[in-house]
Design a protein around this nucleic acid. Structure first.
Lengths: 349, 349
DNA sequence: TTGTACGCGTTATCAG
DNA sequence: CTGATAACGCGTACAA
C-alpha cells in the first residue's frame, strides 16, 4: 500500500508531458510508436493505473448504473442482477447493487448517495409501488432530475418513469386456464397481496380470470401472505382450516415458487397428495422447481430478458428522455407434475 | 437531467465561500447557525448534492470495498453478499459486487478496475484457489500493493493475504460421525472436487475422517462433480451404476445442498427411499432444506459470520497490514429427516 | 507528433 | 466563525 503513483510521476520519468501519458493509456493513435513503448514501459514498471475518480470528475459521469432491489435472497432477484450486470458490462458500464427494503420508503440517504455518485441511471425492481411506501413519487422524480430511471414493475402513470413489466395477464391466465382445462373448478391463490403494491396486480388478474371462466371467486379462495416459503406453509394451513372439507379448493396457485415450496410441504403434511388431492402451480420457474417432489409446474416470467431490456432502455434514455411502458416477452407455463397434467390426471367434479 | 449545480453556485447564491458550504454539508460545528440556515436553504432550493468523485479525488479513497464472487446464483453466495453488505454499510462503506468466473484466471481488467477505482479493500469468496487459476498469486499481490485483501478460503500460505476460513474439519467430521453413530458403514461423498482448488479440502477431510473411524475409503465412494443440482443427479447415477448392489453406500454426503437436491431426486427416481435405503446429508443449510422431502439434514458453515468478520478484518487491515488465518466459528450439523436420526432410524449392517 | 495550461468539484490549510 | 487558495489526478482544447 504505497504512495499512489500519478500521471505526473510517469510523465516525468518518461520525459514526456502528461498529455502523452493519457494518449498512451487511452490508446490514442497520435503517438509515435517509439514514444508509446517507452511510456508504456514506465507505466508497467511503476504499475501505474489512472484514477477513476479523477476521470469521472473530468467527464462528469461515472459509467455506473445502480440496481435497487428490495432483497437478494429470493433467487428471482439474483437472476435479475446477473442479467442486468452482464448487459451493463457489455455496454461498458458497471452495475452497483443496492438494497432498499420492501414496504418502506426509499431512504433519503439512498437517493442522495445515487445522486452524489453521479450515476448514469437507476434500475428499480421488485414491488416498488407498495402503498406504504410514502414519498415514492417524490424520490423518483428527484432522481429523474439527475438520471434516467427505469422500473421493472406494472405500468403506472404515477411513477412517471420507464416501466418494463412482466406479462401480468398471462401470468395469471396461464395457470388458471390450465387448471380449468384439467377439470379444476375450485382454484385458490395464495401469497403476495391483493391490496398493496405491484404484487396486487397478480391477484387481481387471477380474480378476473376466474370470473371470465365463470368460476367461483370466493373471497376465501385468495389469501394474502408474504413472499417466502414459510408464508406458503402458513397460508395453506389458514386456507384449509378455514373451510369445510367439501369446499376445499382442488388446486392452488402460489404467488411465487418460494410460497409454493412452503405450500407443498404443508399440503403433504396434512396428508393430501399432490397433484391428486391438490394441484399446485408456482411462479418464476426457479432452479429448484425440477427438484421438488413432485416437480413444480411454474410460470416463467423471463426476468433475465426484462433486466436486459431495462438496462438497454436506461442507456438509450440518456438521450431521449421519456416515460413509457413496455412488455418484453409473454410469460409461459412450464408444465411439470405438480399440476397433474403430465400424469394425464383429470379432475372429476 | 439539468446542468449539475456545484458548490460554486451555492456559495455565490448564499454569499459565502465554498469552504463554508462544505462546512455546512459536512456538519462542521464551526458555522454560525444563522449562516448555516441560510446556506442550507439555498442547498435545498437548488437540490445541491456534492459530487462523490470530487470528494474521492480529494481524499484519495472511495469508501468502497469490493466483493469478488465466482457467481451469485448459489444462495450461499447471496448470504455472503448480504452480510458483507450490511457490515460495510454499518461502517460507512459501500460494497461493490463483482463476479469473476470460477476456474478461470482473474481477468487483468478486473484487478485494473479495482485499482483504478481506488477501492479500500477487496474481499474474495468462493473457490479462489483453484489450480487452473493461473496467475492468482500475481493478481493478489498486485492488488495487495494497493489495498488490503481478504479471502474467505482455506488457509493457504501461498495466497499471502488474510484468510477467513470455514470450519473445514467439522464440516467433514460432523456428518461422517453422525452417520457412523447411526450405524452406517459405507458412506460416499459426491460433488466438488478432490483434486482441485479450495473445495478439495472438504473431500480430503472426508477421507481422513473415514480412515479415523476405520471405515472403507473405497475410491469408488467419492465422486467429483460440479456444484449444482444437475451435478448431484448425475453423480448419484454414476456412483450407483458403477457398483454392484451389495456394495452400494448406505449414506451419501453431498458437497453442498444444491448437489444434495439433485441427489435426492435421483435417489428417489431409482426407487430408493430416503433415509431408509439411503441417508443423505448436505451442506450450507440453505433456505430450501426444511422444504425438501424428506427435509434435508445439512451442515451450517455460518457464511454470514464469516463475511461479517471478513469485512471487519478488511477495515482493520487498512492500518495493520499482515497476512493471517482465522476461523470464525465452528460449523454445526442441522439434523432434519434425510439422515434418519429424527426417525430413530438405525442402520443394521 | 507533442506540450502547455486550464477546468472538473471538493476538501483542507492557513490566515484573518 | 469565515474566506482565499492550493491541492487532488486526470482529460482536453489549443498551440506549437
Amino acid at each position: 500500500m504505497n504512495r499512489k503513483v500519478t500521471i505526473y510521476d510517469i510523465a516525468r520519468e518518461a520525459g514526456v508531458s502528461t498529455a502523452t501519458v493519457t494518449r498512451v493509456t487511452s490508446n490514442d493513435p497520435r503517438v509515435k510508436s517509439s514514444t508509446r513503448e517507452r511510456v508504456q514501459r514506465i507505466i508497467d514498471a511503476y504499475a501505474y493505473t489512472p484514477s477513476a475518480s479523477a476521470r469521472d470528475l473530468e467527464r462528469g459521469q461515472s459509467k455506473t448504473i445502480a440496481l435497487v432491489l428490495p432483497q437478494i435472497i429470493n433467487p428471482y432477484f439474483t437472476r435479475i442482477f446477473n442479467s442486468a450486470n452482464e448487459e451493463a458490462i457489455a455496454n461498458g458500464y458497471s452495475l452497483w447493487l443496492v438494497q432498499s427494503p420492501d414496504h418502506k420508503p426509499i431512504p433519503r440517504t439512498l437517493t442522495e448517495e445515487l445522486i452524489r455518485r453521479r450515476l448514469d441511471g437507476v434500475l428499480f425492481a421488485g414491488n416498488i409501488w407498495s402503498t406504504d411506501r410514502s414519498g415514492l413519487s417524490e424520490a423518483l422524480s428527484r432522481l429523474r432530475h439527475h438520471m434516467p430511471v427505469v422500473a421493472i414493475c406494472p405500468p403506472n402513470a404515477k411513477l412517471d418513469c420507464i416501466c418494463i413489466h412482466s406479462d401480468l395477464v398471462g401470468c395469471a391466465r396461464l395457470p388458471v386456464r390450465h387448471l380449468h382445462t384439467l377439470g379444476h373448478r375450485r382454484i385458490a391463490f395464495i401469497g403476495g397481496s391483493l391490496l398493496e403494491g405491484d404484487s396486487s396486480q397478480r391477484g387481481q388478474n387471477f380474480l378476473e380470470e376466474l370470473r371470465a371462466l365463470g368460476l367461483p371467486d370466493d373471497p376465501a379462495y385468495h389469501l394474502d401472505c408474504g413472499y417466502d416459503a414459510e408464508s406458503g406453509e402458513r397460508a395453506v394451513l389458514r386456507l384449509l382450516s378455514g373451510l369445510e372439507r367439501k369446499r376445499w379448493p382442488t388446486a392452488l396457485i402460489a404467488f411465487n415458487d418460494l410460497v409454493a415450496l412452503g405450500a407443498l410441504k404443508q399440503i403433504k403434511q396434512m396428508g393430501l397428495r399432490v397433484p391428486d388431492d391438490m394441484a399446485l402451480i408456482g411462479c418464476d420457474n426457479q432452479f429448484f422447481c425440477p427438484y421438488t417432489d413432485p416437480p413444480l409446474t411454474s410460470v416463467d416470467l423471463y426476468p433475465e430478458e426484462m433486466a436486459r431490456s431495462a438496462v438497454r432502455e436506461l442507456l438509450i434514455a440518456r438521450e431521449n428522455n421519456a416515460s413509457s411502458f413496455s412488455l418484453v416477452r409473454e410469460s409461459s407455463l412450464i408444465v411439470r407434475e405438480s399440476c397433474g397434467a403430465k400424469l394425464g390426471y383429470r379432475k372429476l367434479e
